[in-house]
Design a protein around this nucleic acid. Structure first.
Lengths: 229, 229
DNA sequence: GAACAATTGTTACCAGAGTTACAATTCTAC
DNA sequence: GTAGAATTGTAACTCTGGTAACAATTGTTC
């Protein structure tokens, strides 16, 4: 049981981009030093006590990550699936928490405390290089999101974001986004009605198919073209 | 001459947050292994040849950083002053460049190539931890920006952004932002006219004073309150 | 100081997104 | 299967912000 989960963790870590090119020993160390945590729907991914600066890697399941905004608002910023890393250090620490994640599917997380990181760094100092690597990925994604919201009008924005979500999900195959139009709107700063109008237009154009709380992307390239208008 | 600039670089690096807590030797190594580059107004901060993955640290001057967005658009995302770090690795590399920076004041940059980084890491592997640290800061800032644009309406957004810019500039003192309303609007996805309306309102309320291509912030707390509406 | 460029202040008009409300559909639980 | 919840499809209305255009002000250059 526990062994299966460990194997799964090893497998997931073996696939993530930010560990590519590093020794497999590093991956093993991460799994060994980390602690596997099961999370039920609705629970938050957050460490307790001395582990506030820790690191979470999603092994199985799905979480929604929210970012705090002025006025006690919180904005849904992404769907977090296997292989994703949840915050660390500054993203969580210091005053009001900046990013929170709630579990929307029963999930399995690999929790790596700050002390575990130090432990690992003793033998594999390159761990920090790997961490810097995914931090860059996060920065890149966040910047892209900001740039899109700032410069694109709703229609283009929706197209761009859908493509980004579909690609981060699974490249290649026709991806299915399991998310309601309400939440999608919340993610992009639009109302459900606006989402609905444009999604319907995209469906009519044959780029995608809207279902009950899901969107099936047929033609990412078509959407990209819209986004580039 | 060259010596003065080296001293200045040492001083600037001594102040930056992401190097706090590390050995001064690391700072010195960065300055020694790096290359000081002068940039004239209008020039781009970008490495040539094998140095594309390098790192830039602004020592003196001011740059505008832009983020690429769909449709060949580019969005002004920030004013980059002394102590700031400009991109690295994934932010710049791979296909179309994601972030670009153009010099708007004669500037001095410390350019640290990828090979120099490796060199430094040989003796000071903790350099990567420091790099991860500012990468987190970048992520945090980018996320905050995205969250603001998504969740706040123009008025609140302007207030929030002005506060953020003023604080990143110089905490404490009444800060003066040297930027035109046109550019401010571009940064926040608004037209100059909309900027103008709200800035005038803020001025009438006594939060700030608008001048010719500059904004003097008197009352950040008042602006924060607006942002929290 | 005069000519020019850049920036700000202001207007009228309009497209498009937000708001509110309700009906139709699909899923879930018992 | 039925009841209730969640989600989607639409409607009428309002209003903010974008567009376009021009005048007034401030800064820069020669």
């Amino acid at each position: 049981m526990k062994q299966d989960e460990k194997k799964l963790a090893l497998h997931v870590l073996g696939e993530v981009g930010w560990l590519k090119g590093y020794s497999p020993a590093l991956t093993e160390r991460l799994v060994n030093e980390g602690r596997l945590t099961r999370l039920g729907v609705g629970e938050w991914a957050q460490s307790e006590g001395d582990n506030r600066m820790g690191l979470f890697i999603v092994i199985r399941g799905l979480l929604h990550s929210y970012c705090a905004a002025p006025g006690d608002k919180s904005v849904l910023i992404g769907l977090v699936g296997p292989g994703s890393v949840l915050g660390h250090a500054t993203c969580y620490s210091g005053g009001p928490r900046m990013v929170t994640a709630v579990c929307v599917e029963p999930s399995l997380l690999l929790e790596i405390s700050e002390t575990a990181l130090d432990e690992i760094a003793n033998q594999s100092p390159e761990i920090w290089r790997a961490i810097a690597s995914f931090a860059y990925t996060h920065t890149r994604a966040a910047l892209r999101m900001a740039a899109e919201v700032i410069s694109l009008r709703p229609r283009e924005r929706i197209a761009a974001r859908l493509v980004a979500m579909a690609e981060s999900d699974r490249p290649d195959e026709t991806s299915i986004l399991k998310i309601s139009q309400e939440l999608l709107g919340e993610m992009m700063g639009l109302t459900r009605k606006t989402m609905n109008i444009h999604l319907s237009a995209f469906e009519k154009a044959g780029f995608l198919k809207v279902g009950y709380a899901q969107i099936e992307i047929y033609d990412p390239d078509g959407l990209k073209e819209i986004a580039n208008r």
